[in-house]
């Protein structure tokens, strides 16, 4: 018998929406909706096994082969650069990676720009592509507070609705790139389960293709 397709889903609201998409694509697993503390759910008939992990860990599970496929945000893929295939844009969890600064801030390019962010690599790549000298201040949360306290000039972060920024008197200065959830696959798994992963990819693409 062919082995189960292991799927790593990101815990949380987005993960549940993504599971719904998998279910609509024909890869449902009813027991997942029952209240329980279990972390692993199987559908023997379809040969799929789901498990919930921290969103930023999905790419690690997939790269290391503990999961054959998974769903991770483009932000995570750009920041950690896991060696995986990026098979589809699921067009969910849409947001933007952007540069934000206190209202009225002007970067005249005369000093090293201090950038606070969780996404050091993305920030470095963005500014180095335009030859701007920056000082990256890596923070793990509450990035918005950095410019208010004078820790940084600007921040590079994910912007969904912009409410948090507005409430802290910050505004988007520049958009770096749009972000959405991507279906990723382990490279070796793809080789051994080509048909299964291909069928799943196509079924998900059929559902998301129409969406903009």
């Amino acid at each position: 018998m062919e082995r189960f397709l292991n799927v790593a889903l990101p815990k949380g609201r987005l993960g549940e929406k993504i599971y719904d998409l998998f279910e609509r694509a024909g890869y449902g697993c009813p027991s997942i909706k029952e209240e329980s503390r279990r972390l692993v759910f199987e559908n023997g008939e379809r040969g799929v096994r789901y498990f919930w992990v921290k969103p930023s860990d999905v790419a690690i599970y997939v790269e290391r082969g503990a999961a054959d496929v998974g769903v991770a945000g483009k932000d995570i893929l750009l920041e950690y650069r896991p060696d995986v295939y990026e098979l589809a844009d699921l067009k969910m969890g849409k947001c933007r990676m952007a540069v934000a600064a206190p209202k009225g801030f002007r970067d005249d390019g005369s000093t090293t720009l201090r950038v606070a962010t969780k996404f050091s690599r993305i920030a470095k790549d963005f500014y180095s592509s335009r030859g701007r000298d920056i000082d990256v201040i890596h923070l793990n949360g509450s990035i918005e507070i950095a410019p208010i306290l004078g820790l940084s000039d600007v921040i590079v972060d994910i912007v969904e609705t912009g409410t948090t920024l507005r409430e802290n008197d910050l505004e988007v200065v520049e958009e770096i790139l749009p972000i959405s959830a991507r279906l990723i696959s382990n490279k070796a798994s793809f080789r051994f389960m080509t048909d299964k992963i291909g069928a799943l990819t196509n079924a998900l693409k059929d559902l998301t293709e129409g969406e903009k």
Binding site: R64, G65, N186, A188, F192
Partner: peptide, 9 residues
């Protein structure tokens, strides 16, 4: 080349 059980080439 890939071998089942090893996640990389």
């Amino acid at each position: 080349g890939f071998v089942e059980g090893v996640p990389e080439s």
